[in-house]
Amino acid sequence: MNIFRLTGDLSHLAAIIILLLKIWKSRSCAGISGKSQILFAMVFTTRYLDLLTAYISLYNTSMKIIYIGCSYATVYLIYAKFKATYDGNHDTFRVEFLVVPVGGLSFLVNHDFSPLEILWTFSIYLEAVAILPQLFMISKTGEAETITTHYLFFLGLYRALYLINWVWRFYFEGFFDMIAIVAGVVQTILYCDFFYLYVTKVLKGKKLSLPA
């Protein structure tokens, strides 16, 4: 464990908690893509099946349980409890165009052709593109609530910190996982446009609005 990975995990946890609290306190999921949240729930489910087979540490196990619990709670709030506030007209990204290619790729490019490893690979590839429905929804509505931009900032920051963690681990431990690194680079690149808007607008107190 190194500082980049720890702050990355805490940034990820912060994003998940910010979103859950935003929906719970405002009793509304306006502007939130339910499709992205379903994809994230799929990412955690397929990645953390090793909860049943391997114990790594209390930190590892508790974080996985928190991530899975919060992501399913968020999906529940969006599609059940606050369903009336779900903006389905703008959450129209065709997720099958993500899940099918990612599913196929995880069978073709993986470290080991075993069920757990293929599911892990699927979760890595899926996480790289899971935010697309959310970014697409913001481009369609042309704006995002400030709290939503903070959620996206921490979510994008977490994988960027993981990239630094992988540089660190390669240099000090000789460890590297090409699949996680390539997917992590793609994932972080997808946030670049948002990061630019976040820094130039939101951090200056303006609302994030895209030229519609």
Binding site: S57, K64, D177, M178, A180
Partner: peptide, 10 residues
């Protein structure tokens, strides 16, 4: 290609 070390990252 790394051997499938135990996945200790989240």
């Amino acid at each position: 290609d790394t051997e499938t070390t135990e996945k200790d990252e989240l």
